[in-house]
């Protein structure tokens, strides 16, 4: 997939989560997503960035604008060096949470994106790769 543009942001604080949302909004607009899709992507970004901050102990977000013949997409990578997720299937289930949330973060984000992959190694960290095509 040819990457047209890449931005990287640190996710270290609650205001970084807001910065990620705002950047993702701008990129989604540039990619030509309609308002509902923009909202889906920004909401997913917010959920994933918060997971990186709250469960991964902070990390970074990489936002990529993708172009393929006939379609445009947005890819979001969230990486941390936190404790990792022992059971990914369980983490994706609605209502499952180890923290203070509703447990809708990962599962909800997966519903809002076309494709969401999680790689995690206990003790090493987690990498969430989410894409939505227009």
């Amino acid at each position: 997939m040819p990457v047209q543009r890449t931005d990287a942001l640190a996710v270290r604080s609650a205001s970084d989560v807001v910065a990620v949302r705002q950047l993702v909004r701008t990129r989604a607009q540039e990619a030509g997503f309609n308002l509902v899709d923009q909202t889906r992507i920004v909401t997913a970004a917010s959920e994933l960035a918060r997971n990186t901050l709250d469960y991964g102990g902070g990390g970074r977000a990489t936002i990529e604008l993708l172009t393929e013949p006939g379609r445009t997409g947005l890819r979001m990578l969230f990486e941390d060096e936190g404790p990792g997720i022992p059971d990914i299937e369980l983490a994706l289930r609605d209502g499952y949470t180890t923290g203070h949330g509703l447990g809708l973060g990962l599962g909800g984000a997966r519903r809002l994106m076309n494709d969401l992959r999680i790689e995690s190694r206990p003790g090493k960290g987690t990498r969430v790769d989410a894409v939505r095509w227009r």
């Binding site: 509902v36 889906r40 909401t43 959920e47 609605d94 509703l102 599962g107 909800g108 519903r111 809002l112």
Partner: peptide
């Protein structure tokens, strides 16, 4: 609540 927000919230499961 804006329509796009409402749709997304429902898809999120809330």
């Amino acid at each position: 609540m804006q329509p796009a927000v409402a749709i997304t919230l429902v898809e999120l499961g809330l």
